[in-house]
Design a protein around this nucleic acid. Sequence first.
DNA 1: CCGTTTTTGTACTTCCAATGAACTTATTTC
DNA 2: GAAATAAGTTCATTGGAAGTACAAAAACGG
Lengths: 399, 399
Amino acid sequence: MSTTTPARQALLRERNLAIVARTVVDADEPLSRADVAALTGMTRATVSTLVDRLLAARLVAELPPAMPVGRGRPAVPLVAAARTIVGLGLEVNVDYLGGRAIDLTGSVVAELLERDDLHASDPTAILTRLGRLARRIVEQTERAGMRVAGARLALPGLVDVRTSVLKVAPNLGWAGVELLPALGLPQNVPVGVANEAKLAALAQVWAVRGERKKRPTFLYVSGDVGVGAAIVVDDEIFHGQHGWSGEIGHLTIDPAGPRCRCGSTGCLERYAGKEALVSAVGLDVDAPDELIADRLAHADEPARVALNSAGAALGQAIADAVNLLDIDHVLLGGSYALIADLLAPAIEAELAVRVLGAPWAPVTVAAAPVADHAALTGGALAVLRDVIDNPARLIEQQG
Amino acid sequence: MSTTTPARQALLRERNLAIVARTVVDADEPLSRADVAALTGMTRATVSTLVDRLLAARLVAELPPAMPVGRGRPAVPLVAAARTIVGLGLEVNVDYLGGRAIDLTGSVVAELLERDDLHASDPTAILTRLGRLARRIVEQTERAGMRVAGARLALPGLVDVRTSVLKVAPNLGWAGVELLPALGLPQNVPVGVANEAKLAALAQVWAVRGERKKRPTFLYVSGDVGVGAAIVVDDEIFHGQHGWSGEIGHLTIDPAGPRCRCGSTGCLERYAGKEALVSAVGLDVDAPDELIADRLAHADEPARVALNSAGAALGQAIADAVNLLDIDHVLLGGSYALIADLLAPAIEAELAVRVLGAPWAPVTVAAAPVADHAALTGGALAVLRDVIDNPARLIEQQG
DNA sequence: CCGTTTTTGTACTTCCAATGAACTTATTTC
DNA sequence: GAAATAAGTTCATTGGAAGTACAAAAACGG
């Protein structure tokens, strides 16, 4: 029995407010109120009143009238407001922790990164440290007159998005961690948590949003020590029932294969994880991605073998995902971003053979556009998207 | 750029109309207008006017007032209207073709089935035959004063839901078939097409809807000559970009495995398809499911081996799906429904080992409740759900 | 048996957001 | 300068839900 809430008048206003906000913020160039009216199908009168509300909430700003071209009253250009409302992305990963604040124009307005080896670290200590770092960013941005609408914490593991509990993060050595208390962020900054790959995928959404006009649908596959994925359908992350969808690293490549740290056998991670790749070129897992990519590119025989085996395994796993999901675009991120060109041929060869629908809709494989700490960016953008999708909530908080 | 349509007043009415319709139709027992108001949060006045509209559209009916219990003015019981609006489910499969009309109460009001071996049949001839059959059902129901709101055609293959083209159905031997022209249904009966497993899954949604109060989320795995699946999230089928999601039968179990008819190697179908199962008990693929199940249940050694190997392969494939999707409920349908108990142990053993989230959210495996031509039922129900979700469309068609 | 209580369903007024038309404003063109 | 044109605003109108009051129909209580 779906206890859907009835539609009242306020719903109209909220929805239309969100539509106007999205139209202005997503636009490639400044729009006039009349442009917005034409794009959305609303009347100019309606747009005007809604824009007034967005101006008051500082979601949207008026630019000084540009030199008027053509006749008629010159338009007042509307753009996403810069340095007013920001989202905060946070991340703890094996080699660093950090935070990044981004405003509605997509610009980074504050950022703090601390490189560190966090293997087998103490969760409470690290989260406390991240909390301090986050509060520094919050204070800094608030001093500059901005408002932090919320935060998202990215972690490389199984995160229960509803209870904000990290079930397990093998590569951090964390398990069963209550995430929010140790962070200790102020009350007015609501924090959500999510898997690292999923938030990184959101950064890709923002990046490819401009290129194609449709709402993007793709599979984001992120390589690191583990291999994670995010399923993006029409712009939205598919989280699953608890928030731990996308565990492509533990698809079975060969049931008779080597034992995985997860307890299963023949998992993708064992063939295409960072450990498998670096050992072939005589490096350590902690080696920088650029170095690994360089070594792999100038491949001798063992490197080529490792690349092919990783590519074939990735191809098999991605083929499984595509057969299940019917998603025909794949982005390779994380450590894979730099070696996407080296992996793609082997992946595509597998896809061509194993994907049932391939003859009618070939699957494309490409490097993810955002590589640099994509989860931080994605986390911040996730917050901002919530704001854009429901400006009314923010407005009533502002009073 | 999402060209979202602006919200007008009419949207309120349509949405609330749909909410009232859904509340009445989904209820386990008759509801009064006041009950609906209490359940939805609308006022009794609003509910009254909306119910009037639904009564006029014959989506909802008033029962004669039952013997009044308790004091106060006796309630007028509202129920889903019987034998007024019907949905039509159609199917062509390897062993039969048929149609089934179902009304808003979920009762079958008309049904025609023709058993036949349709391997390597002629698409145009068969579709023309199905069209005649469908028109007989339409005429019969219309003579009885009902209205056929639409039809859904289920097919065992890759169906492009947008263009209504069947790309390929290996077990029928069909490829590249324009489905709608040959059917030749009247203009006022819009026909949609979908994969057989997906529509069958919708029948399961309807069946389990009552048990648990939430909107069901599950993976439906349907065994036959091929193995198909449907991903159901919050009541909705996940179709993918073209409509050919759920091809679990072609997940790779072992890349070094036997060649599949699809061109790949080691597909699940080769281990858990009907052919693999029947050959172990000395039967033909055309043998009735009951006989196959009976033979497998009284298993000698080769049968037990086949069951275990099929179960393990299924378990591995389902584990892949669960790791990707984070869906923790699996229903076994089609030929599997009768042997679910025999398969479940092997499947669950694999899931326990291979699903990363299993320690925190165990995956349950059960037989699908609807077995008898579930795709017909699901197709009919899909039409009815469209009606319930948007009663306004039907009303304006009725004038 | 009749008034009181209680609940259902309806009538009518109010409220609110979008619409559409008229109007103001600011610029180009002639 | 006047006309043309386009942007933005004002205001009466419209449509649908909310709220209130009220009529209808039954049980209860004396």
